[in-house]
Design a protein around this nucleic acid. Structure first.
Length: 712
DNA sequence: TAAGCAAGCGCCCTCTGCTGGTGCGTG
DNA sequence: ACACGCACCAGCAGAGGGCGCTTGCTTA
């Protein structure tokens, strides 16, 4: 038997892959009607770092991981399929036999070279080499990669020898006995080395018409091997029974039918496994739990995963260990950052196929997970699981913060909570008392201790407020500033909302005051209802004989008279409010009250009570406060707010101050304004708690003292 | 050569964590 | 009315567990 010679020449300009592919398609169509044989297309990648030593051979690997060797010192280029361990062996044994400069992927070196005398090789002009292997012939097409210089693609075709030639290939004829129809093809790759050992191809046998046989004559010391190749994929096996088992994975035939559900299976073993699902029998039972498996291997793995936790595969870079090697390989990608799976729609690349598949749902819009309750759909199963928690409140998990009473529905939210409220780079300082706190939560907790605490104290009077903003507003009294100027008249105000209300009442004809509130505040002692909480609080003083409310209010009013000026940042006390007030209203009639205090009579008005009509005078006391005074007894009540917070009382006081100075009604009392203007009266009731009904009730409770009760 | 065992591949799942939007209470 | 804080929620990706099925190797 003669060896064959593969001589391949690709002329410059003839490396057209398209041209070759077209040829292959044509060829396939031609043979399609025969036995359906398709060309085998093997892509070879040159293996870096593996060389043939001094011999200079080159190693390639195909998609399936099969290695091939090309000796460079051969007269004719030969590809030899080898096992990787054999490569190493050959590498050693071929040392010094050939120069390295000859590389198989250097196409220009693959000149037409005659093989031994029995082999004839011709180039058919399609970048193909027809190898006349004695009686048979074969065609080898080499397709150089147009993108990767180190890559070549092979198309190997072995034509079935003519019938009369079979005797010259007795072994192969035996292999194809009974299958030798027209177009029957065997793939044969010979070692073209001029070596007697290689002269006779070792016999091989085709499994069926879907398989091919590749005969390998390894170099020199390598033993002769043969491979059974799958025609559907790159699977090769030196053993026929292995190929036979493999071929069943390609076959769509399912001859083994289940007697229960008519389902077909490829193998009897598969059918048996399936039947076991009907019968519920799995032969391999776990001795630690109730699990059972069809194979012993599955059972062993299960035991490692669930019971013994034996993890023989350990990561060298971290503590990770796994039951399976594939898991370790996957894990190592965490360290290497390898992301082989590129999304075709965006820049995302995934370290494994599952993540890419999951990611692709973003682009496809697929949401396979649907909520049973509300039909909401989700791209990930865990999103659905998290969503379902909102439907079963009772079973909803609660994540309790260890540092405070806060609970969260999700662990991640609890973590954010801890991060935000219990973690701080620097201590937080309380603006009110100067204390520092390590985190936001303790700071907030501390801040609540200031709630209701009027820690912002005025140093000119007893006034105190819960906020700096209110204290600043209060200080306008001492500085005698009214920064809010009306655009329609010359009136000015200390607070924005006062200006706004003024404009509504006197410059906005379409203004409609809001309806009065209901009396929702009830005294626990006498059950009297009040519209405003402040009224109730003030009322409670009636039940408390030791109440110092009145005294406190009086002290506040006295202190309020202190006036200062800010000059170059220096506070200068200028005069009392009384003196200033007196100068402003020196045209008013002054009277002396029963308490000996001087009052300025603004107007005498009528106040109705249950017993009839009393005549009351609205007067301004010497300290500038408005009072309602009984002209007969000259007993008076201070017109002031007694709201629950000092700032509200303050605002009320300011308002009364403004009302008596309304433009066009000089020296008119607020009472007159409210009585003459129903809109204003209503406004007083709603916005400032001026409640005539409550006022009457208060009159009863407070004998002859009339107090205009206010609370916002 | 068949059968059994061990290992690998691939798929699906869960857990976890991060990010950003939203509703609501509060100041 | 507005800004802000915060719990709640959906979306998405990283990482690893578990298992069905296939393949390689060994042995009877």
């Amino acid at each position: 038997m003669t060896s064959n010679v593969a001589t391949i020449k690709l002329e410059e300009g003839q490396e057209s892959v398209t041209e070759i592919q077209t040829y292959l398609e044509t060829f396939n169509k031609e043979i399609e009607g025969g036995q359906g044989e398709q060309l085998q297309h093997v892509q070879l990648q040159q293996v870096e770092g593996l060389s043939g030593g001094e011999e200079g051979g080159t190693y390639f690997v195909d998609q399936s991981g099969q290695y091939y060797y090309q000796a460079s010192n051969d007269e004719t280029p030969v590809m030899t399929q080898v096992q990787i361990q054999e490569v190493e062996e050959a590498d050693v044994q071929n040392e010094g036999e050939a120069p390295q400069e000859e590389q198989y992927n250097e196409i220009e070196e693959l000149e037409n070279v005659d093989g031994d005398e029995d082999g004839q090789v011709t180039n058919n002009g399609n970048n193909q080499v027809v190898i006349n292997s004695g009686d048979a012939y074969q065609t080898v097409t080499i397709v150089p990669s147009d993108t990767n210089p180190g890559e070549v693609s092979y198309v190997l075709i072995v034509q079935q020898p003519d019938a009369e030639d079979k005797e010259s290939r007795p072994v192969e004829r035996e292999a194809t006995e009974g299958e030798e129809g027209e177009g029957e093809q065997d793939l044969t790759v010979y070692d073209f080395e001029d070596n007697e050992d290689n002269e006779a191809p070792v016999e091989s046998e085709a499994e069926d018409d879907k398989t091919k046989i590749i005969k390998f004559l390894p170099k020199k010391s390598q033993t002769v091997t043969q491979a059974h190749m799958c025609n559907y994929c790159n699977y090769t096996s030196p053993k026929r029974y292995l190929l036979s088992r493999h071929m069943k994975s390609h076959s769509e035939e399912r001859p083994h039918k289940c007697s229960v559900c008519e389902r077909g299976f490829k193998t009897l073993a598969s059918l048996q496994n399936h039947v076991n699902t009907h019968t519920g029998t799995k032969p391999h039972h776990c001795k630690f739990c109730d699990s059972a498996f069809t194979t012993s291997g599955e059972l062993v793995r299960h035991v490692r995963y669930r019971h013994t936790h034996e993890k023989p595969h350990k990561c060298h870079e971290c503590d990770y260990a796994s039951v399976e090697l594939s898991k370790l390989k996957r894990h190592i990608r965490c360290h290497t950052g390898e992301r082989p799976y590129q999304c075709p729609h965006c820049t995302y690349a995934s370290p494994d196929t599952f993540k890419l598949k999951r990611h692709l749902r973003i682009h496809t819009g697929e949401k396979p997970y649907e909520c049973d309750f509300c039909q909401a759909r989700f791209t990930q199963s865990n999103s659905l699981k998290a969503h379902k928690l909102i439907h079963n409140v009772g079973d909803k998990p609660v994540f309790q913060c260890e540092l405070c009473p806060t609970t969260c529905g999700r662990k991640t939210d609890l973590r954010i909570h801890v991060q935000k409220l219990h973690t701080s780079d620097k201590p937080l300082k309380c603006k009110r008392c100067g204390k520092t706190f390590p985190d936001r939560y303790s700071y907030k907790l501390h801040s609540k201790t200031h709630e209701g605490e009027k820690c912002y104290k005025c140093d000119l009077c007893p006034y105190a407020s819960i906020s700096a903003r209110h204290l600043e507003s209060h200080m306008l009294i001492h500085t005698d500033q009214k920064p809010y100027q009306c655009d329609h008249c010359f009136q000015s105000f200390r607070q924005k909302q006062l200006l706004k209300r003024h404009c509504n009442l006197y410059h906005n004809p379409s203004y409609v005051p809001p309806p009065p509130q209901e009396k929702t505040h009830q005294c626990p002692e006498c059950e009297r209802p009040f519209r405003h909480k402040g009224n109730l609080i003030r009322h409670m003083a009636v039940h408390d004989p030791e109440s110092s409310l009145q005294e406190k209010q009086q002290a506040l009013k006295m202190g309020r008279q202190k006036k200062i000026q800010i000059i170059d940042g220096q506070r200068i006390e200028v005069m009392t409010g009384y003196e200033e007030e007196e100068e402003d209203e020196d045209d008013m009639m002054a009277v002396e009250g029963s308490d000996g205090q001087q009052y300025v009579v603004l107007e005498v008005i009528q106040l109705a009570d249950n017993q009839g009509t009393d005549q009351m005078a609205v007067v301004a006391s010497e300290d500038g406060d408005l009072v309602m005074q009984d002209p007969l007894s000259q007993e008076s009540g201070i017109v002031t707010g007694t709201g629950e917070e000092g700032d509200e009382a303050e605002e009320e006081e300011i308002e009364i101050d403004q009302l008596k100075m309304e433009p066009g009604t000089p020296n008119k009392s607020s009472s007159q304004n409210t009585q003459s203007d129903p809109k204003l009266q209503k406004e007083m009731e709603t916005c400032f708690g001026f409640d005539e009904e409550e006022e009457e009730e208060e009159e009863e409770a407070n004998a002859n003292i009339n107090i205009l009760q206010t609370i916002s």
